[in-house]
Structures are given as C-alpha cells and as structure tokens.
C-alpha cells in the first residue's frame, strides 16, 4: 500500500507539470492582458510595468522563470493584488475554504447517508418517494438561489443567524454558508447511496444473510453498507476537491474571504500567476482525493487489495 501511495505521488508530479504548462500557454493565448483597463495607461507606465513583471521577455523565458520560481516554492507576484505573492494569497484563503468545505462535506455525508438509509427502509414507499422528490429539488435549485433564500429566511426574517461575514472562531458565521454549500451535496449523496444500497440489498449474499436470521438493521449496516459505499466514494473524490477549494457564489453572498473568488476574478483580470496558482492547487487536490478514493476502495473491498 505504501508502494501505491509513493507511486501515485511520484506520477502526480508530471501530471501537475503538464497541467501547469497547458494552463500557462492557454492563458497567454487569451486576448487582453493584466494591465488592460478601460482607459489605457501612458505608454511609459505600461512599458515600466511590463518590465517590472518580466512580461517583456519572450514567452519561453517567462515560462522558464515561472518554473524556476515554483522549484523554490514561489508562485510569483499577483498582478491584481499588488505587493502579494500568489502563495501568500492562497495561504490566507485556503484555511477558510478548507474549513467551510470540510464542514459542508461532513454535514452532507451525515445527512445524505441518513436520508438514504431512511429511504431504503421501504423502497417505493411514501417516505422514499417524498425524500427522492426533495433531493431532486435540492439538486435542481442552484446555490445562487438557495443562498439568498437562506439569508432571507434565517438572517433577515427570523434574525437567528448573521447574514454574512467571517470572523475566526465564530461558529454562527459558518452555519448558513455551510448549509448552502451542503444542500445540493446532501441531495446527491442521498440519491447515490440510496440506489447503490438498493442494488446491494438485492444481492444473493444479502438474501442469504436474512435467511440466517440476521435483523434488517444488521443486514443493512454490516452486510450492505461496504459494497454500497463504493459508488459514493467514487463520486466523493472529485466532489470533495471542488468543495474544499471554495465556491465563488457562496463566498460572494456571505462575504467570505476564501479561495473560490480567485478562480473567477483572476481569470477575468488576466492575473496569470494567480490563475496558475489556484489551478495547480486544485489539480493537486483532485489527485490527492483520487488517491484517497483508491485507498478507500482497497480498505472496503478485500478483492481489490491484491491488485
């Protein structure tokens, strides 16, 4: 297993390098540049700026300079946030996004799992049908609708929770954004787990377990849960990477200083280095989550361990 981890971490490096290279040249192919404004700068100022950020060098030189910086842990200066290095911006935003996304992931797993277990108690029954309709709604409603609705209800009308803001240690700030982030995930997880549980419960070994006198809850929680978790885990890998890197909409609505906004802002502003920084981070997280998925598969399914 250690072997697998090491191999995957090593093959991750060329993958990330490839991602970085593609992204670097694609960004430069996009029209416009970081210093384009509605009113163009005086030519002297622009020339000075371009020299300052090494944009006057050839693309190849810039690429080599950028890679050289990364080798020393420096992702370059942000074009938009003056005076900040990209890694400083990420270091400030990442803990916020991790906290928010992690809490949402945990909530989604607990609530989604509970809903799925409730739904399969009587497949096709009224509770199952009601839950599946509700989860469909949860998937269909976009978060830019859900988030303001939550604010309207719980912050503005009822006044139970703050409408936005982010102070360290204030759990009340977390509730609404976490709920808004988690709602669609709860719905996805409940539906995926429900259908995989139903499929597993039809397996011959489940019938055999029932024939040995085991209770329905033991059959469900001991015999059916492991195989039923496999499809969910495949979904969770990429979903977790996306959740943990923040959400533009949620951060905008609740005024949260996370990473999500950088993905959109930086691309629009042609903040080359920041885009590359967050893309690399996201790529690394996806690779890491997929490694965790594979490890979880091995832990759950004994037949996969030998392979």
């Amino acid at each position: 297993m250690l072997n697998l981890v090491l191999r995957r971490l090593l093959t991750g490096i060329p993958t990330l390098l490839l991602l970085l290279t593609l992204c670097f040249f694609l960004m430069r192919l996009a029209p416009g540049g970081p210093f384009d404004r509605e009113r163009s700068l005086p030519p002297a100022v622009e020339t000075a700026l371009r020299a300052e950020y090494h944009l006057d060098e050839s693309l190849w030189q810039q690429y080599r300079r950028y890679l050289g910086g990364i080798a020393q842990g420096d992702f370059g200066p942000s074009f938009q946030y003056e005076g900040y290095r990209v890694q400083e911006l990420i270091a400030a935003g990442l803990p916020v996004s991790l906290q928010l996304g992690g809490a949402a992931l945990l909530l989604a797993l607990l609530a989604g799992g509970a809903l799925a277990v409730l739904a399969v108690r009587k497949p096709g029954g009224p509770l199952d049908r009601a839950l599946m309709s509700l989860t469909l709604l949860g998937i269909c409603l976009p978060n830019y609708v859900v988030a303001p609705l939550l604010v309207l209800l719980f912050a503005l009308t009822l006044g139970w929770l703050p409408a936005g803001g982010w102070q360290p240690g204030q759990w009340r700030d977390l509730v609404l954004p976490v709920a808004a982030l988690a709602l669609p995930q709860i719905a996805y997880i409940a539906r995926i787990l429900r259908s995989s549980l139903l499929e597993t419960l039809a397996a011959p070994y489940i019938r055999a377990a029932r024939a040995r006198g085991l209770s329905e809850s033991r059959v469900l929680l001991v015999h059916a849960i492991k195989p039923a978790l496999l499809p969910l885990i495949s979904y969770l890998g990429p979903a977790a990477a996306a959740l943990l890197t923040g959400s533009v909409v949620i951060e905008q609505v609740f005024g949260i200083p996370g990473l999500g906004r950088y993905f959109v802002q930086a691309a629009l502003n042609r903040d080359y280095t920041l885009v590359l920084g967050v893309v690399t981070l996201y790529g690394a997280l996806v690779l890491l989550c997929n490694l965790l998925v594979d490890l979880a598969y091995g832990a759950l399914d004994p037949r996969q361990r030998a392979a």
Binding site: A208, G213, L300, D301
Partner: peptide, 24 residues
C-alpha cells in the same frame, strides 16, 4: 420468522460464492 431462520431452519444456498458476503 427471524427467530426460526438460522436457529430452527438453516439454508445452504446453491451458489456458495454468491451467498457469502465478499466484503466480510
């Protein structure tokens, strides 16, 4: 019925591989 299954009447299934839980 649960009290009878296993303790009163035990069933040996046709396909042993499919009837044993592969995850346990």
């Amino acid at each position: 019925l649960r009290a009878v299954r296993g303790a009163g009447i035990a069933y040996v299934w046709q396909d042993a591989l499919a009837s044993l839980n592969p995850y346990l």
